[in-house]
Amino acid sequence: MGILVIGLLLFLGVHSIRIVADPWRTAMRARIGEGPWKGLYSLTSIVGFALIIWGYGIARRESAVIWTPPMGIRHLTILLVAIAFILIAAAYVPGNRIKRVVGHPMSAGTAIWAFGHLLANGTANAVLLFAAFLVWAVASFLSARHRDQVAGTTYPAGTAGRDVVTVVGGLVVWAVFGYFLHGPLIGLNPMG
């Protein structure tokens, strides 16, 4: 599981800089420039993500079972992941009211996604992966909401039409991923 841990440290570490060292982040961006900062951030994220995938695949072959999920938990996980996909869509669809209410729907969606998967997976590698993402997402959400409160940030009111686009778009991507991509990419078909 060492490769998985290194991947999580790189990926979540770089995504945690704003949570734990925002002034340093601002100073480094000013010092080296926006482009180089984004390049290093992206490169570190890609390497970390690749290591997470590779390490999870390796750890999956030899992982100990910590708990066996109860019957029916799969259905709850499917529902939670649908909500997560809607929240993640809300981060990208401009002018929706979900973003106004939640503030940081990407972090909230990631937390719900991770929590749902944590409920449905009891192997050591899955617990490590999803617990790490859950802790990071909750910390990211709380940190971002705090920054918003300090800065007095508010989000546009949004419209019902954009809410519909957000919900339908999130559910379409959720269904496509759940029915057609999760099995080939992850090795498990949650909808089948």
Rank of each mutant, 00 (worst) to 15 (best):
L43T: 11
I32K: 08
I32T: 07
G183L: 10
G183A: 14
P184K: 01
R18A: 07
F133T: 01
W24I: 04
I86Q: 08
I17C: 07
S107G: 04
S45C: 04
I3S: 05
V5I: 05
F130T: 08
M71H: 15
A108D: 11
P36H: 00
I98G: 14
W174Q: 11
I19P: 10
G72P: 09
V101W: 10
A82G: 15
V172E: 06
H182L: 02
T26N: 04
G192W: 04
R74C: 03
G161F: 00
G35K: 02
H146W: 13
H146D: 10
V176P: 14
M191F: 14
A126S: 15
A111V: 09
L76W: 09
W24E: 07
P69T: 00
L129Y: 12
I32C: 07
G55Q: 01
I58N: 13
G187A: 09
P70Y: 03
N96M: 08
M1H: 08
A89C: 07
G170K: 02
R97W: 10
S63W: 04
I66F: 09
P69K: 00
G57M: 01
L185K: 06
R147I: 01
I53H: 03
G178S: 13
R162A: 12
S143Y: 04
G192E: 11
E34M: 02
G2L: 00
L171G: 12
F11K: 06
I112N: 11
A91N: 15
F141V: 02
L12M: 10
G152F: 05
F133Q: 03
G72N: 06
L188R: 15
T44Q: 03
A120K: 05
A137L: 06
R162P: 14
R147S: 02
A132Q: 03
V81S: 12
T110R: 02
L134H: 11
A126G: 13
V172S: 04
V20S: 07
T154Y: 14
H104M: 02
F130A: 06
G57Q: 03
H146F: 09
R162G: 09
V165G: 07
P156A: 03
T110I: 03
M191V: 12
A64E: 12
A64C: 05
H146K: 12
R25H: 00
P190N: 01
G2C: 00
A84G: 13
W37N: 02
W136V: 01
G161C: 02
A82R: 13
W136F: 08
F115R: 11
I78M: 09
G7N: 08
Y92C: 06
L4E: 01
N125S: 12
A137P: 15
W24A: 11
L8I: 02
A144E: 14
L188S: 15
L43M: 05
H117W: 14
P23K: 00
A151K: 10
A27C: 01
F133K: 01
V20C: 04
L171P: 15
S140H: 10
A82I: 09
L80R: 14
I58L: 13
V5N: 06
R61T: 15
R60A: 13
L9P: 06
A91M: 10
L79M: 13
E34Q: 05
L4G: 01
A90L: 08
T154A: 12
L10M: 11
L76I: 09
R60K: 15
G33H: 03
I186H: 14
